[in-house]
Design a protein around this nucleic acid. Structure first.
Lengths: 214, 214
DNA sequence: TATTTATGAGTGGTCAGACCACTTTGTAAT
DNA sequence: ATTACAAAGTGGTCTGACCACTCATAAATA
């Protein structure tokens, strides 16, 4: 008969009302929500229904609960978009190559961004890694992460971080002399904003670390 | 004392176990999950705990429940992540900008890939849209999606699709003459593999559609 | 026999009450 | 004034009980 055979899903209604309540009472980030028992009474539903709604929001990372204390509105910047994305969507396209490509897309974009807009910060990269690079112990991850951080795309950083984990990349290996040399050149060019040269070196690096696999 | 004072969150554990169960028993899209009462017994927890986990997944749109019938695994493409998070999160402009940037990174990477490797398929793009573009009704989304599809990065496509929804972009608007003209040029260049020219036009297009905002 | 109707088992939806574990706070003993 | 203890408040979980609904089966009917 009707397209949605469930005209009412109480717990969904509660989710909506909770949002309303948060807005109305101006609950700020970190602020405390009414207790489950109080909410049950105020919204005229059973406590279990309230809990179903709260647990849903908790899975999304929108609220935080602490036993014995209460329920708190969490920083919405801590949402789990990416995590949930990876959990439920990334599984389908297990293709390792897709992960590679996507991750590299983010890396390249960060490089592009830095070369074209962030003159001030380009210095930081080189300064931050100069000594470590020349001396010894440093892993690729630290450099690349820093590059993406400086490009100031937090969402991209999150996704990149996940993809890195997911692919089980050899990102934590120590670099040999050849690779270090390459990175020194790359960072030098990056500092100068020589985009073309940076990408040239980046691709050279990709060939170097993928000398066997993929 | 400890940073995470909640070592166990049963309902989160159940969410995990449900995923495992779905994988183990090879429940396919549209397939039926065990009843709540059976799950409670099998996983050795109360029915209310099972329900909290199921309701969380339902809010995400990952499962579908029908009273009197049961619980079913729903098409993952129907998930609600985007709507939900956008209502809570997207108020912050920086997030929105991050979404823009990340999405564009994927688009640019697809263009790059096509220009450099997919000689054979470049023809398809032009052929596929030639008539529609010149004639009339076509939305941006169709073209860009096709480009990413041809670049053959399925993961990138999924993420792009999500970000597009998330940002509520004007992707479904019809294009005016100026925009169409731009795309015709762009696709022509793309077909020839003239990367530099394609990017030039791409950036021109970005300026065009963002002529007011961002 | 074929069709309709009634029944009951199974399922999700909701509620109420009971504990438990934990935190905070206030009070009483020192 | 400090410490120790008790009580209240909170989330976490379980149990049992209904309700509303769907579906398969059996019974009654044509």
């Amino acid at each position: 008969m009707n397209q949605t055979n469930n005209p009412k899903k109480m717990f969904l209604e509660i989710v909506k009302q909770l949002r309303q309540l948060i807005a109305d009472e101006n609950v700020s980030v970190g602020g405390k929500l009414p207790s489950e028992r109080e909410l049950a009474e105020r919204l005229q539903v059973g406590r279990s229904t309230i809990r179903e709604a709260l647990r849903s929001l908790e899975l999304l990372g929108l609220i935080e609960t602490r036993r014995g204390e209460g329920t708190f509105l969490s920083d919405y910047r801590k949402h789990r978009l990416v995590e949930l994305l990876s959990t439920f969507i990334l599984q389908e396209s297990k293709s390792k190559e897709d992960v590679h490509i996507t991750r590299q897309a983010l890396e390249k974009d960060a490089i592009h961004t830095i070369c074209n807009t962030e003159r001030l910060y380009r210095l930081h990269i080189w300064e931050a890694f100069k000594e470590k690079l020349i001396k010894e112990e440093i892993v690729r991850e630290d450099i690349i992460r820093e590059i993406i951080i400086i490009s100031d795309n937090r969402l991209g950083l999150k996704i990149w971080f996940l993809l890195k984990q997911f692919a089980g990349e050899p990102y934590r290996e120590n670099m040999n002399l050849q690779e270090k040399s390459l990175w020194i050149q790359l960072l030098t060019s990056l500092q100068k904003g020589e985009e073309h040269q940076v990408f040239s070196l980046y691709y050279e690096w990709l060939l170097l670390i993928n000398r066997g696999d993929v």
